[in-house]
Write a protein that binds this DNA or RNA. Structure first.
Lengths: 111, 111
DNA sequence: CGGCGAGATCGACGGCGGTCGATACGATCA
DNA sequence: TGATCGTATCGACCGCCGTCGATCTCGCCG
């Protein structure tokens, strides 16, 4: 934490305007981005979205991802809590579907 | 890794089409997102961008961020290597400026 | 040349999170 | 009801990274 000592220092290095992004907003945006900043979760979204009917159950996601079933389940939970996918139980299978709205919100938050 | 046992299982859970996002692409996109998925770096970008002339030196970023100078320097290095900011040395001060292009590229990669 | 100030680098520490095997749970079916 | 399958949860391990104090480098100035 430097205190300014001379006028010359002040002149060549003017004080900053406070940025628009506050602590809480930065934290919130970062949290949202952390969910996507993970190869496994990106591939999950891509895999689910790429289905002919736009949905997939866990058992068909583990093999193309090359990850164990608990790990896939963990990532899906993270995506679910972030609102990036929705879950529907049908029989003993859990089907997941991509929700495009939060992705769109994130895109606009970066602009 | 489950092998399918019955026709019923196959019918209710059809095999996945391979998603568009390959391993390498997912890794690359995730790496880029990780740079932004950090409150300190988001606030850095916002602070620099919010300057009247759109640039800032390190000494004026540590205090509004509430982080030590080495930490700020570290984050700026990460942003620099990601191409999100550019650096210009003027005298003994290092001035940083936001480069909007990679942000735009990231936005389009999410769409 | 000597001192100072801006900034980068280094080394260490601590916490977060991705991963897996083991296990629990619930639904289906013989 | 017992067996089996699909998923979720748990506990542990481990690597990554944000953070800081100490130190190094370098440009400026007296």
């Amino acid at each position: 934490m430097n205190r300014m000592k001379t006028i010359a220092t002040l002149a060549s290095c003017p004080p900053l305007l406070e940025g628009r992004l506050g602590h809480a907003e930065a934290e919130q945006l970062a949290t949202a981005l952390k969910v996507l900043a993970e190869p496994a979760r990106l591939r999950l979204l891509s895999l689910i979205q790429g289905q002919p009917d736009g949905e997939a159950c866990v058992c068909h996601l583990t093999e193309p991802l090359g990850l164990s079933q608990p790990t896939v389940s963990h990532h899906l939970k993270v995506l679910l809590q972030a609102g990036l996918v929705e879950r529907e139980q049908r029989g003993s299978w859990a089907f997941f579907r991509v929700r495009p709205e939060p992705l769109e919100a994130l895109r606009s938050a970066l602009g």
